[in-house]
Nucleic acid binder design. Sequence first.
DNA 1: TTATTGTTGCAACAAGGTTGCAAATTGTAT
DNA 2: ATACAATTTGCAACCTTGTTGCAACAATAA
Lengths: 158, 158
Amino acid sequence: MRICLSHSSLKLTVMIHDRELRSLLHKFGLKVTAARLRVLGVLVHSPVALSHRDILEKMGEQTTDKVTLYRTLHSFADCGLIHKVATKERSWRYALHNGDPDTIPHDGDHAHFICDICERIYCMPAVIPDQKQQVELKRGFSLRSEEYRLHGTCPQCH
Amino acid sequence: MRICLSHSSLKLTVMIHDRELRSLLHKFGLKVTAARLRVLGVLVHSPVALSHRDILEKMGEQTTDKVTLYRTLHSFADCGLIHKVATKERSWRYALHNGDPDTIPHDGDHAHFICDICERIYCMPAVIPDQKQQVELKRGFSLRSEEYRLHGTCPQCH
DNA sequence: TTATTGTTGCAACAAGGTTGCAAATTGTAT
DNA sequence: ATACAATTTGCAACCTTGTTGCAACAATAA
């Protein structure tokens, strides 16, 4: 499944209301609760992956307990509504799967481009060489998955 | 410079004594202290990258204060004696640059193989395609560095 | 040998995250 | 609409990784 929520378009952003959020939760088999609606509301309006702290701050008045937020994010990630990306600052970033034409869905082999400046994480199409044969043959390593990370500056930060 | 300390050969391992460790510290412009000799002793005998906790445990009787260990590892990394690798468990792994014929020094493009079971991190020779051209041409991203990670099971855990 | 400078150990702290549990809320079956 | 079972929430306490400030101490250079 591929839910398309464009972040670049303000018009679309404004259109995301309670009804849409509820149906999104339903689609992923989650109970609709006040906290989940608020968290999802924040994620839906962000073009970049957010940290736990970012989300708490963006919730402002409507804030929740920090534990609730961690658990909410876990549920979202477990059912595939959002994805988690590890950062070198030993914390996680969370983002909705999005339909940005410049990125691809978060499955299959692809690269993550992590901007040094704004820390946005982009999923990029990439030709990743298959190392399985090479590595296994050489020393009995068996490969489960590959991750290719690119670090640099994104177009917005130039 | 390339310091060759084979981990696969017990004979060589046994040969690493106080004298060698001291000269290694000297070569990297570090003062020789008891704590540094002990930490270096542990790192020199490990074929895989170790966490702060691993090192403390391996030091056993000869243990140091945890802060001292953090600072020691920082000094080692700053001068290039060891390298740090980030893990998704929000902690660092530290390893000496080594001359193991099956791995390559930690500079230039290569891959990290991270074992799912024992979490050892291996530096692997790898043919990493240069994505710079492709990515920059396509959309104005500029690349600073690339990291290629392989996840799976290592020979020891089969 | 001494002066200078860098290193150690301790206590306290900070950020990110988890656990256990009682109270509140959701979805569902009636 | 009501009641019930199963989840979800919020709180307090806790854990892990890592850092800071500071006084005492040790390594090197003169």
